[in-house]
Amino acid sequence: MTSALGKDLLGLEPLSSEQILLILDTAEPFKEISERAIKKVPALRGQTIVNLFFESSTRTRISFEFAEKRLSADTVNVAASGSSVLKGETLVDTARNLEAMRIDMVVMRHGASGAAQFLAERIESNVINAGDGTHEHPTQGLLDLLTLRDHFGDLKGRRVCICGDVLHSRVARSNIWGLQKLGVEVAVCGPRSLLPNAIEEFGVRVIDRIEEAIEWADALNVLRLQLERMTAGYIPSSREYNRVFGVTRERLERAPRDILIMHPGPMNRGVEIDSDVADGPHSVILNQVTNGIAVRMAVLYLLSGGRPELAEAAKGGTGRRGGAPEMTEAA
């Protein structure tokens, strides 16, 4: 059966605002599962999921794995190191082999933009993009939206500024699409050498100074500054980056309103964000991590054909995938 999201989750750009809200709404009841003593419901029992990580990841991989396990799916983790990828296997061959193993879903992270799309076109299993190159990281975008919604309620008319290396950031792209679809005004702030040349054509405001961004925004999503950007010559040094673009307590203290600070992690403390901001009262960075599991559970559940209106029932433990109506279909 075709899910409300289609076959795959490749990015937030192709989704409608209704689909995004559906995922967020479906995530709400799943939040509570992680608070229980026994963190497990049988919604995905019997489903097999491969977590295929061609790039190293700690947070996202673990978050997906918890989401899968808490829904009772059978999971296999494949990391690029130690797999046939190192032996020169092409992505298309990897895809065909996965298909031959009759798995239900693939969660993939890959260093090439478009890799998730490539895989999705070639296999019948559901594909969830866990980050492809500098293209999209849709579940990160979704968990950021959920975190903002927890705080602000309706997001329409709110202002979010994405700070830092937007050029190389899949998180930034997923955020921009997701936020815009929910009616949020989006700005980016960072050195122009780390912003896509055509960024304004996205309907995004560009703010050159972090002080102005803090003055303008309801929330900042502070991106990680990769060390290799310095060696590649995009910016001179992390020291100067912190001086000019760092989100510091001094700068936040001048904010005209209570501003929310997000970060997709892992953080470079003292570079893009100071410790007393990351650990301070404005920070919702750990809420993002918690929400990550709920959002990923929602995505897995919906893509597997689970009915959104039955998410509450599913977590109640009917013992059937997707709740009661699935029972009759299965019978």
Binding site: E13, S113, G114, D132, G133, T134, H135, E136, R170, R173, P196, N197, A198, I199, E201, F202
Partner: peptide, 11 residues
């Protein structure tokens, strides 16, 4: 280089 490359995340 343009809006499409920015959207697709391609250099």
């Amino acid at each position: 280089e343009g809006i499409v490359s920015a959207r697709l995340g391609l250099k």
